Simulated scan of single mutants.
Amino acid sequence: MRILWSRTLIERGLLAVALALWAGLAPAAEAPAQQPACPPKAAMPAPAQLQQLAARAQDRGLLWRVRHDGHTSWLYGTMHVSRLDWFMPGPEVVKALRGADKLALELDVLDPQVLAELEAGLKARDGAPALSAALAARLDKQLRLACAEADVARLRPEAQVLSLLAQAGRRQGLDPSYGVDLILAGAARAMGKPVIGLETPQLQLKDLVSDDPKEVAEAVDDGLKQLESGKAGPMMVMLADMWSEGRQEKLESYAQWCGCVNTPRERAQLKRMLDGRNPGMADGIASLLKQGDSVFAAVGALHMVGPGGLPALLRKKGYQVERVKFPVQTPPKSESKPVETP
């Protein structure tokens, strides 16, 4: 789901906000009018709001320091959805990014070719078998409840569901448009640092979509059950709060409490999405480190935890990896109360 909103982000101009912010500019913005029944849409912060966000920025997530051949690099576990209040990175994260020679992400979300390949792979296929009438009706209902934009309906069915799941926290203030990876990419570009993709669009598409009608129907049904249960949004909030607080041990046990790994198929998919991809990303990071540069590698936080996470894999390769502990947070009064965690 991490890639479904890339084009929308650019169209809304949030990348331009990040770039202008780090370049010292002040872009003007105006929030669009909203229908009360619809989740709020992400809006670019106005200049005064950006100053407020910068003044109270706190370090969030999980950061590791990696030492190699006299150099220092970093691993940073991110969230692909976030809050406007979390728009600005904290001081330790900013310091680490400024000290790195390059930024490594799962994908270079600013590369037009990457976005074009993702768009081509996610759009509905001509002549593809249609969903059953019952499944299509359930999907259409969720699209209407989410007030999904027209471009979502033009995706493959399973991609539509993934997009809805990624947006499930919008009513609670979480939006893919504020994704941490996106802000880091814009900041790195504004600093003149290259952005490196650790994976290819083809690799991610292979795990997200299928040409097998049976697999498509199963994936759509699984996702719709999460949405219909009403738990997808609160679970997104829970995950985001755990990330914000740097609760590594809770993230490691994600599969035990998320309610999203209930069938053999779902368990196999999670294993493929994490354990199946982590070795390749670890090899990519190690390759960059061997070039002698300092790297800030930022990928989804669930790729960072457990014995198969990137810190553990880099330790096995001989690198010295240590967690950077952030100061205890003092949540601003404007933030919502954290969801009770297990």
Rank of each mutant, 00 (worst) to 15 (best):
A133Q: 10
L135M: 10
A136M: 10
R138E: 06
R138A: 01
D140M: 05
D140V: 08
K141N: 13
Q142D: 13
L145K: 08
C147K: 03
C147Y: 02
A150H: 02
D151S: 09
R154W: 10
L155W: 02
L155S: 01
L155M: 09
L155V: 04
R156I: 07
R156Y: 06
P157F: 07
P157V: 12
P157S: 12
E158D: 13
E158G: 09
E158Q: 15
A159K: 05
Q160D: 13
L162H: 07
L162Y: 04
L164I: 07
L164K: 00
L165M: 02
A166V: 12
Q167N: 14
Q167S: 12
Q167C: 10
R170A: 15
R171L: 09
G173W: 02
L174G: 03
D175W: 04
D175F: 04
D175Q: 07
P176T: 11
G179F: 00
V180Q: 07
V180K: 03
I183M: 03
A187L: 09
A188F: 04
R189N: 11
G192V: 11
P194I: 10
P194C: 07
V195C: 03
V195T: 06
G197F: 06
T200M: 11
P201L: 10
Q202C: 00
L205R: 11
K206M: 13
L208H: 01
L208Y: 00
S210V: 07
S210T: 14
D211A: 15
D211V: 14
D212K: 10
E215P: 02
A217E: 06
A217Y: 01
A217K: 00
A219W: 01
A219F: 01
A219D: 00
V220H: 00
D221R: 05
D222E: 15
G223T: 01
G223Q: 00
L224R: 03
K225P: 09
E228K: 01
S229W: 13
S229I: 14
G230H: 11
K231I: 11
K231H: 10
A232V: 11
M235C: 04
V237F: 01
V237M: 08
L239G: 04
L239D: 03
S244P: 04
R247T: 04
K250W: 13
L251R: 05
L251T: 02
A255K: 04
W257D: 07
W257T: 13
W257C: 08
C258T: 12
G259V: 10
G259F: 05
C260V: 13
V261G: 11
N262W: 09
N262E: 15
T263K: 03
T263W: 05
R265S: 13
R267G: 14
A268K: 14
K271G: 05
K271A: 14
K271Y: 12
M273N: 09
